[in-house]
Each structure stands twice: as structure tokens, then as C-alpha cells.
């Protein structure tokens, strides 16, 4: 931009734009989906292109909770607690069909979808989802973040 040129923006749009490209995710990896999460995070698919390359393994430093893999009833209180420990603004991604609905584990041990415990922003179905659909889900989340559709 040359001297004298300017552009206007709303403050929340600017913040949303900034947030969109600095996603610090907390991968709550429990099961098979973790393997695809690893694949997505590594060189071949490279989520770093979307500004989500640095997983923070502490809920206090993260703003997106990736729930990756089946959540059993034994694990549910742990997940809830980790969600509560995260600072606002926070988003939740349900990664894999087990977290969306319980998947084909319709039995005594498995939670039938994590949205019975915590609110979810983006659902990525698949058992496990391919890296391409993970990236698609991530981009959907970015849109959601940029438009400021987050809860407070």
C-alpha cells in the first residue's frame, strides 16, 4: 500500500481474521483417529498451511479442542474437565464418527456423541476421517472463527 492509502475494518473482523490463522489445538487423542490426526499433522498433509501447525498439549494454552477418538463413559468426566479448563474463546471439533454419534459402538461402554457432554462446533465424520476431510473440517472451523460465530 502506498502512502495515503488506507482500509477500514471492524475490530471484531480484524480479530477474527487474526484468530483464524493462529489455531492452537489441543489434540485429545484417545483412539484410532489419532493415527489419522498424526498423518494430517505431519509432512504429507501439513496442517501448518492453515496456521494450525502447533498442537499445545495443555488445555490452558489451547483454543481449539480436537476430540480425536472414541470417548468411553470412563473417559467422559476427564473430557468435560479438560473442556472446562480451556480459556475463552474456545471451540470444539468432533473428530471421527465416534465423537459425533458414537459410531458403530452402540454399547454399554461408549458415549453416544460428545455433544451430550460438551458443545461442539464442527463435526468431522469418518471412521477415521481421511486427512482431506480433516482439512475440510478445519477450514469450516476457520470460517466460523472468522465470522465471529463463537460463543462467549
Amino acid at each position: 500500500m502506498g502512502v495515503g492509502s488506507f482500509f477500514t475494518s471492524k475490530l471484531d473482523e480484524a480479530i477474527g481474521w487474526g484468530r483464524k490463522y493462529s489455531i492452537f489445538q489441543y489434540p485429545f487423542v484417545t483412539a484410532c483417529c489419532g493415527m489419522e490426526y498424526m498423518a494430517t499433522a505431519c509432512s504429507h498433509y501439513d496442517v501448518d498451511r492453515f496456521g494450525a501447525g502447533l498442537p499445545r498439549f495443555s488445555p490452558r494454552q489451547a483454543d481449539v479442542l480436537f476430540v480425536v477418538g472414541t470417548i468411553s463413559h470412563k473417559m467422559a468426566p476427564v473430557l468435560k474437565r479438560i473442556y472446562d479448563q480451556m480459556c475463552e474463546p474456545k471451540w470444539v471439533v468432533a473428530f471421527g464418527v465416534c465423537t459425533c454419534t458414537g459410531g458403530f459402538y452402540n454399547n454399554y461402554a461408549t458415549v453416544q456423541g460428545i455433544d451430550t457432554i460438551i458443545p461442539v462446533d464442527v463435526y468431522i465424520p469418518g471412521c477415521p476421517p481421511r486427512p482431506e476431510s480433516v482439512i475440510d473440517g478445519l477450514m469450516k472451523l476457520q470460517e466460523k472463527i472468522a465470522t465471529g460465530a463463537q460463543r462467549y
Partner: peptide
Amino acid sequence: MYEEFEGHPLRKDYPIERRQPLIGP
């Protein structure tokens, strides 16, 4: 299983869908 769980799930008379959640509905 967790301590709060009642019954023994692999017994044939335990129905597969009898859930005993710790939190949630």
C-alpha cells in the same frame, strides 16, 4: 470398567445397551 459400574458386562444376561454414564444424560 469404573468402580461405579454395576454388573458384569460380558455376562450373557447383561444387555449390551445398558449404559451407566458417569456424567451426561
